[in-house]
């Protein structure tokens, strides 16, 4: 792939970013109400509402608001949340580690378990084991994550209370290094399990189906005819051919790691991005939603570009073009 190709892709990405930023500004302003009118209190008189609108800059003409928003957002200055009056970027960065810890761990588990299980079961197509694994995976994949979360909460939080049910640390937290690490792990087991149980199934099914398809191809037959071992046929030929779409999928899934898992975060009281974003959307907290969606858009665009790059690395046919 030529350098011109990448520059072109970069150009498209920038145009996309501009469109996303503009839509991001418009969508929340055409929604009914505004952040001030949503506060219902008998003490909240029209004068107080007007004072808050002025404080938030909502009394400015839309065009002025838009230009200010574009200028500040590109400088990663997302302003202060209307609700908490704290800098959005700081709040976002404070919440990101928990979300990454939850979704990053669950993502790695999902990919590893799903892909490995998918490859293994593809070679045992039709067996009782494969039928069982596929059935369970489909079942878990179809279960809503809140249901899995609540089930885990009740089972391991109440009936057999061996895990903490909230947060990422004990209250008060331990003070030494290893106890801190173990405490964190202990707290993350239930939420990570909740996300993983309802998430690995799609990876499993995708890999299994693709490997089964690959195993029926002529080049696999040729490899077998050459006398290669089952392991070599599976990993060097069949799996190799399904690797590029899996890699693409991995990269396209990466931005999801920062959008958060709102339900799991709520059930296990995790200070994460998902809940932050949903609350901000419901409260029409413009600076927060604009900041968060900008960061997510950047991540999506960056990961798409990265997927293009890596695709070439794992697929020689593309590299040679």
């Amino acid at each position: 792939m030529s350098g011109a190709y990448y520059w072109r892709r970069l150009g498209y990405a920038l145009i996309t970013l501009f469109v996303i930023m503009t839509l991001n500004f418009i969508i929340f302003r055409i929604m009914p109400g505004d952040p001030v009118s949503l506060v219902l209190s008998p003490e909240f008189t029209p004068e107080v509402r007007q004072m808050l609108r002025e404080m938030y800059g909502l009394d400015q003409p839309l065009w002025t608001q838009y230009l200010l928003y574009m200028k500040n957002t590109l400088a990663f200055d997302f302003g202060r949340s209307f609700v908490t009056r704290q800098p959005v970027l700081r709040e976002l960065l404070a919440r990101l580690p928990n979300t990454l810890m939850l979704l990053g761990t669950a993502f790695v588990l999902n990919v590893v378990v799903g892909v490995v299980l998918g490859i293994k079961m593809a070679t045992r197509q039709g067996s009782r084991l494969e039928t069982g694994v596929t059935g369970v995976s489909l079942f878990l994949n179809a279960m809503p994550s809140f249901f899995v979360g609540l089930l885990l909460l009740l089972t391991f939080g109440y009936y057999w209370p061996i895990f903490p049910i909230r947060g990422t640390m004990s209250v008060p937290p331990p003070t030494e290094f290893w106890p801190i690490i173990f405490d964190r792990i202990h707290h993350m087991i239930l939420p990570v399990t909740a996300v993983s149980l309802s998430g690995y199934g799609s990876w499993y099914l995708y890999t299994r189906n693709n490997v089964i398809g690959a195993l029926g191809q002529d080049y696999v037959l040729t490899a077998r005819a050459k006398g290669l071992t089952q392991r070599e046929v599976l990993y060097r030929h069949a799996f190799r051919s399904v690797l590029p779409p899996i890699v693409t999928l991995v990269f396209l899934s990466l931005p999801g790691l920062i959008t958060g898992a709102v339900i799991t975060e709520s059930i296990f009281s995790l200070y994460g991005v998902g809940r932050y974003l949903v609350d901000a959307t419901l409260q029409q907290d413009y600076p927060v939603v604009q900041g968060c969606f900008f960061v997510i858009a950047l991540a999506v665009l960056a990961c798409n570009l990265l997927a293009d790059l890596v695709y070439g690395l794992v697929d020689p046919r593309i590299r040679l073009r």
């Binding site: 909460l153 009740l154 939080g157 109440y158 209370p161 909230r166 709520s266 059930i267 009281s269 200070y271």
Partner: peptide, 16 residues
Amino acid sequence: LPIILDQEAQIIALQR
């Protein structure tokens, strides 16, 4: 004052 967001978790936390 531990922060517990989910109502079901709050009930369980009280009972625990």
